[in-house]
């Protein structure tokens, strides 16, 4: 049965996975659910295009991925795209370029592999991620989680390569500062 689609079993086999995928990236329950539904319907229209080169799940996820990017794009154009939004949080001295004393990295004491600590760290980080502007979060996860090529991200989200690097840098500075603030 390799290379065959079985639409009648999609919900049973893939709905939870696709839903978790969407919710992870969108964080709005209703929107995530709608995207999964749209994905199934779009996939039904395109059953003929399936060549069997990937698994059914990979194929469906690819369709969902584009729907998620559409949401990112809409959010980004809704005024939340502002690259300068993190500017008020300037971590460095203007003249010297050194870390400002209050933002300078401090040891977090989590270099060990204690799974309980790791879990706690994960939940702090999750909250910090939610504080990032939508476009920053999109770019950060597309790069570090989905490992998309940089050019593809710039094209999909309509950011220049220069802005891409500025956003990657600011996103990490903000995330790290947020971790430090909430962990110590």
């Amino acid at each position: 049965m390799k290379g065959m689609l079985e639409p009648r079993r999609w919900v049973e086999r893939h709905a939870d996975y696709l839903y978790a995928y969407a919710l992870n990236r969108i964080d709005e329950i209703e929107l995530a659910r709608d995207l999964v539904q749209e994905t199934f319907l779009a996939a039904l229209e395109r059953v003929g295009e399936f060549e069997g080169k990937s698994s059914e799940r990979t194929w469906l996820t690819a369709i969902l991925k584009y729907k998620v990017i559409d949401v990112y794009r809409k959010r980004a154009s809704g005024g939340r795209a502002d690259v300068d939004r993190g500017e008020e949080m300037d971590f460095f001295e203007v003249d010297s370029g050194h870390w400002k004393a209050e933002y300078a990295p401090k040891a977090l004491g989590i270099d060990n592999r204690d799974p309980l600590l790791q879990k706690e760290l994960g939940s702090v980080l999750q909250r910090c991620l939610q504080k990032l502007p939508a476009l920053w979060l999109s770019i950060f996860t597309m790069k570090h989680v989905d490992e998309e090529p940089t050019e593809a991200i710039c094209t999909e989200l309509k950011v220049t390569p220069a802005n891409f690097w500025v956003i990657m840098h600011r996103a990490k500075l903000n995330l790290r500062a947020c971790m430090q603030k909430n962990w110590l």
Partner: peptide, 27 residues
């Protein structure tokens, strides 16, 4: 220190997303 913490954040974010795709958020 920033370098070490930055790498750690990348790793934890990766884990966070992959784990969540496992099972715990069901439709």
């Amino acid at each position: 220190l920033f370098l070490r913490q930055s790498r750690m954040i990348n790793a934890v974010v990766g884990d966070l997303f992959r784990r969540a795709e496992g099972a715990d958020r069901r439709m």
